[in-house]
Design a protein around this nucleic acid. Structure first.
Lengths: 237, 237
DNA sequence: AGGCTAGGTGTACGATGTACACCATGTCAA
DNA sequence: TTGACATGGTGTACATCGTACACCTAGCCT
């Protein structure tokens, strides 16, 4: 279960003393530095100069730890400046989530495997829903819109399709200068995939896919669609 | 690395003899029955009446195992009947993926944590891209469309937003008859979330969200949007 | 016949999450 | 001032996991 972050400050900063928020902060820092997969209770404990079991006085278990990490970050998503129209406000909130995702690369997979919805997480969802509602959409349509926006609410659209021709193998550190023979073989089996990759490479100088632009494209596409449904007086059934 | 499923049939079905496809089949069956989290090398081995390390003669490691499982399933996605227009064909392919997802509940999270793209997986992506291309879309637009469709290509849109008011806790077996006091507290902190849940509950007899309809709604929304961009002569930049 | 190889066995190691009993220290009531 | 009690860090221990490595065995080809 998720334990509320009500910190009783018995000795606010007694030397070497742990606290839930302190543990979460250290965990976030560790994940930022070395990735989620090397965040183990033991590793985190040693980072804090403490024995592993000490952590369990502040978090229920590992799930609670990562839930807390997520919560801490989601809790200070910056709200869009007031006065924006609802569409810009939604966009702002979602972009704020995306910003957090860039600061904390582990956040995405943490959100994906998270089993709980913590207060801040619910708050973020609620805020987005609230903006849509402010635009005058019926709750019925807000509901559908939230589904349609899906993970974009969390700042990413999943990479079912990402570029780079021959990456059946694990992603290497450097771009790997594309063996032409291998590419030809690829092109025979997966002509459209390769054609897209080539088309992209030829269009952009670096040859890389601009994932930022892709994200914005998708987001705007969805917002426009929902917005015009609303304008057309859409109703369920 | 992913090992190709070229089965040399030295003794096609010698009694008790393992084979890659046999291992994968057993793994799929086990995951179907008990979920992905209880699929361990040891468990699978004992299921096959064999010592754990025996599996490693047929599978490189556990990642390769689940990649193989995914691949085996994706490989026999049913192609849409020929003659359909491109929009219906894309829809058909994506719905076929969604069907597989229902048969194998573990498939979704397996796809989410998969690190490799296996041949069948690439093939599915390529087929979808091919249908779009057949509709006359430029590769540039196909590329954007694939991004927009995102995980829907795999048969699901992630549930950032799903129903049921007070589910901060883990999902229980039975619906949990909603403590009104607790719901009131929820409604105060998360008014729109609760309002949506209530609106939905009131609209549908069971009170449950029709996730099938949600999925179709989103898919059609995106397809319509892409389709009309194309009709309007959309080009990059 | 004899060796090569494909494939199943056995043992072992290092990690992980966490249960449980323990003990130190600060707070507060008597 | 003293003693009880709660809070929180410690130590040991266990089950489970993936998998490295050395071994052995049976079937095929020359």
């Amino acid at each position: 279960m998720y334990t509320m972050s009500s910190e009783p400050p018995p000795t606010p900063r007694a030397a070497g003393r742990l606290s839930r928020s302190g543990v979460l902060e250290a965990a976030v820092a560790l994940a930022d530095r070395e990735g989620l997969e090397s965040l183990s209770m033991r590793r985190l404990a040693s980072e804090l100069g403490v024995v592993p079991m000490a952590l369990y006085k502040h978090v229920a278990d590992k799930d609670d730890l990562v839930a807390g990490m997520i919560d801490q970050i989601v809790a200070d998503y910056r709200a869009p400046q007031p006065g924006l129209d609802w569409r810009a406000a939604v966009r702002g909130r979602i972009m704020a989530a995306r910003d957090a995702l860039h600061e904390h690369p582990w956040l995405r997979s943490a959100l994906e495997r998270a089993t709980q919805r913590t207060p801040a997480v619910l708050g973020h969802m609620d805020a987005v829903a609230g903006e849509l509602r402010r635009g005058g959409l019926s709750y019925d349509l807000v509901h559908h819109a939230m589904h349609a926006l899906g993970h974009r609410i969390w700042g990413f659209s999943p990479e079912a399709f990402s570029d780079g021709a021959g990456s059946t193998t694990a992603p290497d550190a450097e771009p790997a200068p594309v063996d032409p023979a291998q590419l030809a073989a690829m092109a025979e089996r997966y002509p459209h995939v390769v054609a897209i990759a080539l088309d992209t490479a030829q269009r952009a100088p670096g040859g890389a896919c601009d994932t930022e632009a892709e994200f914005a494209f998708t987001l705007d596409l969805l917002l426009d669609a929902v917005s015009s449904l609303h304008a057309a007086g859409w109703r369920s059934r």
